[in-house]
Amino acid sequence: MANDLSSWQPRPTPDQRVLQGRFVRLEALAVARHGDDLWRALQGPDPALWDYLPYGPFSERSHFDAWLTNNTERRDPLFYAVIDQASSRALGVFSYLNIVAQDGCIEIGHVAFGAPMQRTAGATEAIYLLARHAFDDLGYRRLEWKCDAANTRSRRAAERFGFVHEGLFRQHRVNKGKNRDTAWFSIIDGEWPRCRDAFQCWLATENFDQQGQQRQRLQALRESA
């Protein structure tokens, strides 16, 4: 598709349908349904969660609810709550953003996963579900991931998920009174099948032992595909 776009048509925009996985499901963010869970999950023992986001942390519940409400009223970014299938509790939020249907380009961002969700199979599956929906259901050509260049956790996550580092936008933004150089990453449609196969193999039941530990790393599965 990268070279022959003679039949290209603008893609549909995401409609916030429920995306079901084995560990988590994604659904449209709703304050009444998810607010209590998210307040507990996101105000927990990870103060660094908010360091590189342009908002938070929230010292008062009313301010947190106002932030959630604002997010539910927007279509770009388009926010999802991440629901743990085992407990039915919302443990995180993230979004599509910079949605350019005309060119088939879309980004994953505003990632705020509470401590109970971090470094879990559900966290990986949540990213996979959004990526799969963008490429396989909606037919987008490019999926982006951007973060503060100083945010080593986000950079490592992007590379683990299969995003390719494209470069650095120097002095791109001012965030909480500090300079932000922005690191850009992407997966394009020609790379997605290998990434998708690796995600599916990694998430499979047989890739986890009885203690829930991975048998093979996601990167290794992608490299061997």
Score class of each variant (00 low, 15 high):
2 A>Q: 07
3 N>A: 10
6 S>C: 03
6 S>H: 11
10 P>Y: 15
11 R>H: 11
15 D>I: 08
16 Q>I: 00
16 Q>Y: 04
20 Q>R: 02
28 A>E: 06
29 L>K: 02
29 L>P: 07
31 V>L: 14
32 A>R: 12
38 L>W: 10
44 G>K: 03
44 G>F: 00
44 G>H: 13
45 P>F: 06
48 A>H: 03
49 L>D: 04
50 W>A: 01
52 Y>Q: 05
57 P>Y: 13
57 P>S: 10
59 S>R: 15
59 S>N: 15
62 S>C: 03
62 S>H: 11
63 H>S: 15
63 H>Y: 08
63 H>I: 02
65 D>L: 15
71 N>I: 01
74 R>C: 14
75 R>G: 08
75 R>V: 06
83 I>G: 02
86 A>S: 15
89 R>K: 00
92 G>E: 11
94 F>V: 00
95 S>F: 01
96 Y>E: 00
96 Y>D: 04
99 I>S: 04
100 V>L: 10
101 A>F: 07
102 Q>D: 12
103 D>E: 12
105 C>D: 03
109 G>M: 11
109 G>C: 06
112 A>V: 02
112 A>C: 12
112 A>Y: 03
113 F>Q: 02
113 F>A: 00
115 A>K: 02
116 P>C: 11
118 Q>L: 12
118 Q>I: 07
120 T>Q: 13
122 G>L: 09
122 G>Q: 11
123 A>D: 07
125 E>V: 02
130 L>R: 02
130 L>S: 05
135 F>P: 05
141 R>Q: 09
142 R>W: 12
143 L>G: 07
146 K>F: 10
149 A>Y: 06
150 A>Q: 05
154 S>K: 09
154 S>G: 13
155 R>S: 09
159 E>R: 12
161 F>D: 05
162 G>S: 06
163 F>V: 05
163 F>K: 07
164 V>E: 12
164 V>D: 04
165 H>G: 12
166 E>L: 00
167 G>E: 13
170 R>I: 00
176 K>P: 02
177 G>M: 10
177 G>H: 03
180 R>K: 13
181 D>W: 04
181 D>F: 02
182 T>F: 11
184 W>C: 10
185 F>V: 05
185 F>W: 09
186 S>K: 09
186 S>F: 12
189 D>Q: 14
189 D>E: 15
191 E>S: 03
192 W>Q: 01
193 P>S: 13
198 A>F: 08
200 Q>P: 02
200 Q>F: 01
201 C>N: 13
203 L>G: 10
204 A>I: 07
204 A>G: 08
206 E>N: 14
208 F>K: 08
213 Q>G: 05
218 L>Q: 11
218 L>Y: 12
